[in-house]
């Protein structure tokens, strides 16, 4: 059990990457996404002028809610462990992002052992799942066929980031903290160019999918008893 890092004694490099560079990365990412969204919205959307059969609003809500309703998507129902893996992996990323932005402001928070162990548990999940996802992309032919260098690179970066998070979370090693922030900062600059951008598109695609299938009465999926139709 080592001692906590004394914040004031952090090296200049660590301070730079945790603060100026990190925030510059954030600013860059926000700008890049603004441009990305502008470019997306500049493209015309397919128009829909026919009378609706279903309820758009309900369907759009449903389209967003399916993220938390794995039973509504056959493949997730069938491979429930993959859904669990997906959920834990994304929660680990959320914890990672939270850690990256909260620690420079209130580092004391990590001195609470419950919080630091909680963060470490998620970092472990992220690390293990990241490696298993990478292995799956390498070993399984179906996954290899659809994987690009960007897919692989993002996974390598993520599991390394999670690994550094495991050791950085207790705030006892400047080396790991420095590594963690270097990777976090690199992410902020790289993510807008990579497949990780999918989360920016998520609200848009789910909106359009919900609207389209809702318009036709396909969403929300039906579970009615056809004996009671009309």
């Amino acid at each position: 059990m080592g001692d906590y890092i004394i914040w004031e004694n952090l090296g200049n490099g660590t301070k730079l990457v945790m603060n100026q560079l990190h925030y510059a990365g954030l600013l860059f990412m926000i700008l890049a996404y603004t441009v990305k969204i502008y470019q997306l919205l500049k493209k015309p959307a397919a128009a829909e002028g026919t009378p609706a059969r279903g309820d758009h609003k309900k369907a759009i809500q449903y389209a967003f809610m399916t993220l938390a309703m794995p039973w509504e998507i056959e493949s997730q129902k069938r491979h429930w462990y993959r859904y669990l893996e997906f959920a834990l992996f994304h929660l680990a990323m959320a914890v990672g992002i939270g850690f990256a932005f909260i620690v420079p402001i209130i580092p004391e928070i990590m001195k609470n052992p419950i919080i630091s162990i909680f963060a470490q548990i998620f970092f472990i999940f992220g690390f293990v799942i990241g490696i298993s996802r990478l292995l799956r992309r390498i070993v399984i032919a179906e996954m290899r066929t659809i994987s690009t260098p960007d897919d692989m690179f993002c996974l390598v970066l993520l599991f390394l980031w999670m690994l550094s998070g495991i050791f950085a979370a207790p705030l006892k090693s400047e080396f790991w903290l420095f590594s963690y922030y270097c990777m976090a900062t690199f992410f902020l600059f790289y993510v807008p160019f990579s497949k990780i951008s999918h989360y920016v598109y998520f609200p848009f695609i789910r909106y359009y999918v919900g609207k389209h299938f809702g318009h036709r009465g396909t969403f929300p999926k039906k579970n009615v008893n056809s004996q009671q139709l009309y």
């Binding site: 997306l40 397919a46 690009t148 497949k195 999918h198 598109y201 695609i205 359009y208 389209h212």
Partner: peptide
């Protein structure tokens, strides 16, 4: 168009 772009850009493989 926009819907095509979203379906192209969002797939995470």
């Amino acid at each position: 168009n926009r819907q095509h772009s979203l379906s192209f850009a969002t797939c995470v493989h």
